[in-house]
Nucleic acid binder design. Structure first.
Length: 95
DNA sequence: TCTGAGCGC
């Protein structure tokens, strides 16, 4: 499973739309649109979890895909740092 | 209601 960073998303886009869009290029395990925690407004980007194989295809296929009139920016997402011992500094730990 | 960088609690 790989994480995909989706940026330049239209404010009108929903998790369902993103999921369906990525589902066309592979199996979507999970979709999460990030919203501003301060104001509650959508930041315009999100994350999609897909199998590594499908993720690679989706990234290349959906990268630049026009959604809501805006070219989506799809790229491998960084691993969210977790507290507790070492860690930090990002870096995807070998699975 | 509106807005537009860019990696989530």
């Amino acid at each position: 499973m790989s994480k995909i960073y989706v940026g330049n998303l239209p404010f009108s886009a929903d998790e369902t739309a993103v999921r369906d869009l990525f589902a066309q290029h592979g199996t979507v395990d999970s979709v999460a649109l990030i919203m501003d925690r301060d104001t509650g407004r959508p930041r315009g980007f999100g994350f999609v979890e897909m199998p590594r194989a499908d993720a690679a295809r989706a990234i290349q296929s959906l990268n630049g895909h026009d959604m809501g009139g805006r070219p989506l920016k799809v790229n491998e997402a960084q691993d969210k740092p977790r507290g507790g011992g070492g860690g930090g500094g990002g870096g995807q730990r070998r699975w």
